Simulated scan of single mutants.
Amino acid sequence: MRQTRPRTLRRTLTPAFLTAASAALAVYALRFRPKLLTWGATPSEAHRAYPGDEMVPYADGSSTMATTLPAPPERVWPWLVQMGGDRGGWYSWDRLDHWGHPSTERIVPAWQELREGQRLDATRDGSCWFGVALLEPNRTLVLRSDLDPIAGRSFDPWSEPLPAVRMDGIWAFHLSPAPGGATRLVVRTRGQSRPRWLARPFDLLLGEPAHFVMQTRQFHNLRRLARTPAV
């Protein structure tokens, strides 16, 4: 039995297998990954700078995704400001990011107060959170995450010393009026992880695809909710 596994492994890792695996990775990196990272965004939207970008000046990874919502910015904004695990949810796949609790289907006045520096829980016990880094009503909402993956909790980005292993990033929502009384919503992410050699494979194989799945679901739900009157 001890000799079977090495032989099986050697048979699996044939030149043909390695060539096919390399080709698959190349196709993903060159053809599919750029589309995932810029889903729905125009070239000008994908390449321009946005408020909050400067918070992660040396980003290792970034994405810019966009959609058009069937309501003006002042009707979309109330849905965004009540996001949070301890508030209205995230309007995405609730089983994955809201502990199975449905995100709210209505505007809740008690959740309409939001301020810079406020924490929005991302885990049930509040050990991980998004911080409100920048807020301009009806235009810009930038959420910041600074995570120590070893400890499994968020940390204050101005604390000393910083964790040796960490994942820092922003999740930014930018709204602008669109023709027909609609809203163009552009969502920009920028992240920086340390040590990069450890975090890069995680980002490529799990982080970026997971963000695509969650963000497109949020877009879908926001388009539906935007048709609901804000008051």
Rank of each mutant, 00 (worst) to 15 (best):
P70K: 12
P70M: 13
A71T: 08
A71I: 06
P72F: 02
P72N: 00
P72R: 02
P73E: 02
E74N: 12
E74Y: 03
V76L: 07
W77G: 03
W77Q: 04
P78N: 05
P78H: 07
P78R: 05
P78A: 03
P78W: 04
P78F: 07
W79P: 08
L80K: 07
V81E: 06
Q82V: 08
M83H: 08
M83V: 10
G84Y: 02
G84N: 01
G84E: 00
G85P: 03
G85A: 01
G85E: 01
G85H: 01
D86S: 13
D86L: 02
R87Y: 05
R87L: 06
G88D: 11
G89K: 08
G89Y: 05
W90Q: 04
W90N: 04
W90R: 02
Y91C: 09
Y91K: 02
Y91N: 10
S92Q: 04
S92H: 03
S92I: 07
W93L: 14
W93A: 11
D94A: 11
D94N: 10
D94P: 03
D94V: 03
R95T: 13
R95V: 12
R95N: 14
R95K: 12
R95E: 15
D97V: 15
H98Q: 15
H98Y: 13
W99G: 15
G100Q: 10
H101V: 15
H101E: 14
H101G: 04
P102K: 13
S103I: 10
S103R: 11
T104S: 12
T104P: 00
E105I: 05
E105A: 15
E105C: 09
E105M: 10
E105S: 15
R106L: 08
R106P: 01
V108E: 15
P109S: 02
A110W: 00
A110C: 02
A110V: 09
A110I: 03
A110R: 11
W111G: 07
W111V: 05
W111N: 09
W111P: 12
Q112L: 13
Q112D: 09
Q112Y: 06
Q112N: 07
E113A: 13
E113W: 00
L114H: 05
R115C: 02
R115E: 14
R115K: 14
R115N: 10
E116L: 00
E116C: 05
G117A: 04
G117F: 04
Q118A: 15
R119S: 11
R119E: 12
L120K: 07
L120A: 08
D121Y: 07
A122H: 13
T123R: 15
T123P: 11
T123M: 13
R124D: 11
R124Q: 14
R124Y: 10
R124C: 02
D125H: 08
D125S: 13
D125G: 08
D125W: 08
G126I: 08
G126R: 04
G126A: 05
G126V: 03
S127P: 00
S127F: 00
C128P: 00
C128Q: 15
W129I: 04
W129L: 07
W129N: 08
F130T: 01
G131T: 14
G131S: 12
V132E: 03
V132A: 08
A133K: 06
A133G: 01
A133Q: 05
A133F: 05
L134K: 11
L134Y: 06
